[in-house]
């Protein structure tokens, strides 16, 4: 057993774990945050995407022990109390969500993209979410959702 401490959505969690445990298992089974989904378990689909130290990773391909000391944001960490994050609002408004399985990962990839480049072009948006597969929507509404989120975030910054 190995002792690890991770900061997830601003809170510290220390656990003694088996070295085999993956980051996704730590998040879902130890901390019981079920928003992070497992699709392929092999890095292909992006359903398990979380933000680790500012960068998106597939949490099915990271050992929890290798995330020791890291800061993690999961989908649960995006809203501010009852206020949804502008990306979440935008996805709801435009109807970018069907079954929803890909959406936590899709939104975190979007967040990482817009944190780095709020003015991302359509091509850059497509590139930014290229590691996230969606079997329902055909992506059109998702890309639209990202564009609306860009406007919302820019407007809220101008209002500051």
């Amino acid at each position: 057993m190995i002792e690890v401490t991770l900061k997830i959505n601003g809170k510290m969690y220390t656990r003694k774990i088996n070295p085999m445990l993956r980051l996704i298992d730590f998040i879902r089974d130890e901390i019981k945050l079920k928003g992070t989904k497992e699709g392929c378990g092999e890095g292909e689909c992006g359903a398990c995407t979380v933000i680790m130290n500012g960068k998106t990773v597939n949490s099915c391909l990271v050992l929890a022990a290798s995330a020791n000391g890291a800061e993690i944001t999961t989908i649960e960490g995006l809203s501010n109390g009852d206020h949804l994050h502008p990306i979440q609002e935008a996805f709801i408004e435009v109807g970018a969500v069907q079954c929803g399985y890909c959406i936590p990962g899709m939104i975190l990839s979007t967040k990482a993209l817009l944190d780095e480049n709020l003015d991302a072009t359509e091509a850059q948006i497509k590139e930014g979410i290229s590691g996230n597969l969606c079997r329902c929507t055909g992506y059109t509404k998702i890309v639209e959702g990202v564009k609306i989120a860009q406007k919302k975030i820019i407007n809220s910054q101008e209002g500051d």
């Binding site: 890095g43 960068k55 391909l61």
Partner: peptide, 9 residues
């Protein structure tokens, strides 16, 4: 190479 997440890792 890969997609954004894989390139980060």
């Amino acid at each position: 190479m890969g997609g954004p997440q894989i390139r980060n890792m």
